[in-house]
Design a protein around this nucleic acid. Structure first.
Lengths: 161, 161
DNA sequence: CCAATTTAGATTGGCGTCAAACTATTTTGC
DNA sequence: GCAAAATAGTTTGACGCCAATCTAAATTGG
């Protein structure tokens, strides 16, 4: 392969590396990662003041939609380890956004419920997440967004779901 | 009682109520995350025996394509923190896959080069990554793969690059 | 019925990542 | 020319995640 010596003599401040990315742009995984980073950064920025991450937000959504759900069910649904879910719920419970209650049928499990305070916050978060999505997808039409989701869902995931 | 393989008798663990996912499936970010997880799992499985992760592989590709590149340039190109790059290079250098050399023009920077051993390994890794991509994208035609990349690249990323 | 196995949640340890602070060096600006 | 600011690499600390392990409880199977 021909080497590309960087012969540019430019002031350091204006030096634009513009590295040769090699085979990386040929990989779908690479572009997936870049998109993921961009989305996560906007998400983090949007929800930083609320102490929320995609994982925490997802957990609150699932608890609200499935009152009494267990931690293990959540972990499986959202692809987090059970041990990770412990600290997520610890955090949310510590902020009085969700509560662990005793299960009526299985004393091993915690039945999780959203609190009034949690439901109130979640309503605001849902509006914010809509704005977030609108922001990151501004350049895509409704058809293109649906197409993107459709293509993403056809990425092989026999290990998951 | 005659013993028969009753496929409907599944362990208690398989009692999956199939949670209501609420608004999550409406979010592109959610589907992006699922695809990312699936891709990463296959990648990790493929490269586990080689002690490689997407980040380490990407760094090796970039060093090979840009001999003498600095750690900071790499970090910027691949969206890792400079401090993270230190340990990545430490690891690769510890395995004699890359080397830090003194820069001719800036004594602050390390000029990074791939070693013969690193180049040899990288050649194998590139074949593996092709197979990995083929596996995760098996359900997509060439046109659909290009379309997916095209859509991913149009996700807003003004924060990046 | 009851011992063995499985399951749920929690604890601990390891790894990867980022951010802040530190040192050495380079660049900037007066 | 030289002091101030910026930059490169490193170290340290924090956080999120997973894997292994532990305890209590439920389920299974003889």
């Amino acid at each position: 392969m021909a080497r590309k010596p960087d012969l540019r003599v430019v002031p350091a401040a204006a030096r634009e590396p513009t590295l040769d990315l090699g085979i990386l742009p040929n990989q779908v995984g690479y572009h997936l990662r870049l998109a993921q980073i961009a989305v996560f950064e906007d998400f983090a920025e949007t929800f930083h003041d609320h102490g929320m991450s995609p994982g925490r937000f997802g957990v609150m959504v699932l608890i609200e939609a499935n009152p009494g759900v267990s931690q293990g069910q959540l972990a499986q649904a959202i692809h987090l380890d059970r041990s990770t879910m412990v600290s997520v719920i610890d955090y949310l419970e510590g902020r009085d956004l969700v509560v662990r209650k005793a299960s009526a049928t299985d004393r091993r499990t915690n039945a999780l419920w959203i609190t009034p305070k949690g439901a109130e916050l979640l309503a605001d978060l849902k509006k914010l997440v809509e704005q977030h999505e609108e922001r990151i997808l501004a350049d895509l039409s409704a058809e293109e967004r649906a197409q993107l989701v459709q293509l993403l869902n056809r990425v092989k995931r026999q290990n998951l779901l």
